[in-house]
C-alpha cells in the first residue's frame, strides 16, 4: 500500500512549509521568531512522518520539539543580538561562502537522489510501526538503546559539571593540598 494522492499532496505541502520555515529561521531579524520558525519546520516534518504511518515517532517529534523550542526561546531572548530592534546589526559572517557550501551540498544530494536507481520496497508495512520499534528496542536493537542511555547519562554529568561554580578542587588542586588557592582574583577566603 503506497500513499494516497491526498496524502501525497499533504506531504508536498508540509515539505514546502518545513523548508520555508527553515529558511525563515535565518532570515527573520528576531532570534525569538527564528526559534518559532524552527518549531514550525519541526512540526511540518512531524506531519510528514505521520503521513508515513510513523505515528509514534511523529508524536514524539512534535511533543519533544515543542518543549525544546519553548526552552530554546528563553535562551534566545537571553542571547538576543538585536533586542526589540534597538541594535540593528548583521548576524552573519562569511555569508557568501556559507551559502555556496549550502547550495553545493543541496545540489549534490539532489543529484544523487534523482539519479540513483532506488530499490523496490522490500516487504509490506507492519500492522503497527510502534510495536515494530518497541520490539526492536527491546530485542534486536537493544545495543543502540544502551549506547543512547550511556550518552544521555554522560550528557547529564557534563551539563552538571558545566553548570557548577568553581569548587574547592578548582581552587586547591585535585588533592586539596595547594597552599595558595588558585583564584582568578586573589584575596578570597582560604
Amino acid at each position: 500500500m503506497m500513499l494516497t494522492s491526498l496524502a501525497i499532496v499533504a506531504v508536498i505541502l508540509l515539505g514546502l512549509i518545513s523548508v520555508a520555515a527553515g529558511v525563515a529561521v535565518f532570515v527573520v531579524d528576531s532570534m525569538a521568531k527564528a526559534t518559532f520558525a524552527l518549531l514550525v519546520s519541526f512540526l511540518a516534518v512531524a506531519g510528514i512522518l505521520l503521513a508515513l504511518e510513523l505515528t509514534y515517532l511523529a508524536v514524539v517529534t512534535a511533543l519533544m520539539m515543542t518543549i525544546e523550542m519553548a526552552i530554546m526561546a528563553v535562551f534566545m531572548i537571553m542571547f538576543m543580538m538585536n533586542p526589540a530592534g534597538l541594535m540593528p546589526m548583521t548576524m552573519v559572517h562569511n555569508a557568501r561562502t556559507s551559502a555556496v557550501a549550502g547550495v553545493v551540498v543541496f545540489a549534490v544530494l539532489v543529484l544523487g537522489i534523482w539519479t540513483i536507481d532506488w530499490p523496490a520496497r522490500v516487504g509490506s508495512l507492519p500492522a503497527d510501526s510502534t510495536r515494530q520499534l518497541g520490539e526492536a528496542i527491546m530485542s534486536s536493537h537493544m545495543l543502540v538503546m544502551l549506547v543512547i542511555g550511556i550518552g544521555l547519562f554522560a550528557t547529564i554529568i557534563s551539563g552538571t559539571v558545566l553548570a557548577t561554580h568553581r569548587g574547592r578542587y578548582d581552587r586547591f588542586g585535585p588533592d586539596l593540598r595547594t597552599a595558595k588557592p588558585n583564584d582568578p582574583v586573589s584575596g578570597g577566603l582560604r
Binding site: 527553515g22 556559507s98 549550502g102 544530494l109 537522489i113
Partner: peptide, 30 residues
C-alpha cells in the same frame, strides 16, 4: 525522491546557517 529532496533542502539550509551565523545559539539552530 520528493521527500528526500525536502530533506536535502533542510540539510543545505541548516549547513548555511551553521556556517554563517555569528551567535553561538543560532549556530545550534542550524
Amino acid at each position: 525522491q520528493l521527500i528526500l529532496s525536502v530533506a536535502a533542502a533542510l540539510i543545505g539550509v541548516g549547513l548555511f546557517g551553521a556556517l554563517s551565523q555569528q551567535s553561538i545559539v543560532m549556530v545550534m539552530m542550524g
